[in-house]
């Protein structure tokens, strides 16, 4: 039985999974999510601790941090995305891992981010984890609505076309650079905004929060959940975040089992848990069949 705190972490995992999924929906394997997550978290930590809040902070102030974090990460992503998005496949993946490491070292070394200890005593907008569930769950619902609409929008169709065949899409007269950049920027904004919530939830923020490990874990959310539908990363993020906690009863073996799940998951479910075929089946399922 997951408690409310774990549920918050699960939802944050789902949001990060969606952030990795966005560029992938346009055929780009970008692992830059933790870099923007770290930028968002650091920004929130700085803004919230610099004003004198006496341990609590209004929800409005947190929402304002989310707006600023969104703007900052969007600007950064545009700056970085233009040169980086010319790379493909594994090259893009490695370039974005490099970005994650550069941001991590910068947060560790900059004079105002608290060094190794990080920033602590981040004030709380809520007295109970239920507040965080509402905030992050609300953001997740908003994302779900947007992603569902995206699939039928022009941008979404262009993304899918690039994923299928970038060259052909360019020949059709679609500005592929702009489409890829849009997906990259949206992914960065989502990661940055998630970082703001995470910083408040974690009470503290430091350079370790956005690391190579996070890049791989969030990629695993998408791969195991399924990369063909936005629900894949959501369900992958929810389940994989909970898994190490649910495996606690096995004691020392729990990380071995976690590793086995990541190892064998793609082998047995190469398309992830949520496949288009599964969604079609669900869509055709008539409720009245249940009646005797």
């Amino acid at each position: 039985m997951p408690d409310n705190g774990l549920l918050v972490q699960m939802i944050l995992g789902a949001l990060l999974g969606l952030s990795v999924y966005l560029p992938m929906a346009a055929g780009q394997l970008s692992l830059a999510t933790p870099a923007f997550y770290a930028v968002g978290g650091t920004l929130a930590a700085l803004m919230a601790t610099h004003a004198d809040h006496q341990g609590t902070i209004s929800l409005g102030a947190v929402l304002w941090e989310m707006v600023v974090a969104g703007a900052l990460t969007a600007a950064l992503a545009t700056l970085v995305g233009l040169p980086v998005l010319r790379l493909r496949g594994i090259y893009l993946a490695i370039a974005t891992i490099a970005l994650v490491e550069i941001v991590r070292v910068a947060i560790l070394n900059l004079p105002f981010t608290g060094g190794a200890t990080g920033i602590f005593g981040i004030p709380q907008p809520f007295h109970h984890p239920l507040g965080y569930i509402t905030l992050s769950g609300g953001l997740l619902a908003l994302c779900g609505w947007a992603f569902q609409r995206l699939e039928t929008s022009r941008l979404g169709r262009a993304m899918a076309a690039i994923r299928d065949d970038e060259l052909a899409t360019r020949c059709m007269g679609i500005n592929t650079t702009r489409v890829k950049l849009s997906a990259f920027v949206a992914s960065a904004v989502l990661a940055g905004v998630t970082g703001v919530i995470a910083a408040h939830y974690l009470n503290t923020w430091n350079a370790r929060q956005g690391s190579f490990d996070v890049a791989i874990t969030t990629l695993a959310f998408v791969i195991l959940g399924g990369s063909r539908s936005w629900l894949g990363p959501v369900i992958g993020g929810l389940l994989l975040t909970a898994l190490p906690e649910l495996l606690r009863p096995v004691g020392d073996l729990r990380l071995v089992l976690f590793g086995l799940v990541i190892l064998l998951g793609p082998v047995f479910f190469p398309q992830g848990l949520i496949t288009p075929a599964l969604l079609e089946k669900l869509g055709r399922w008539k409720l009245r069949r249940l009646k005797p």
Binding site: A220, I223, G259, L260, I262, L263, L264, P266
Partner: peptide, 16 residues
């Protein structure tokens, strides 16, 4: 590219 994840899983199992 799925092997990025499976090989990482193999590494986690080995180290632990």
């Amino acid at each position: 590219l799925l092997s990025l994840i499976t090989s990482l899983g193999a590494g986690v199992v080995l180290v632990n």
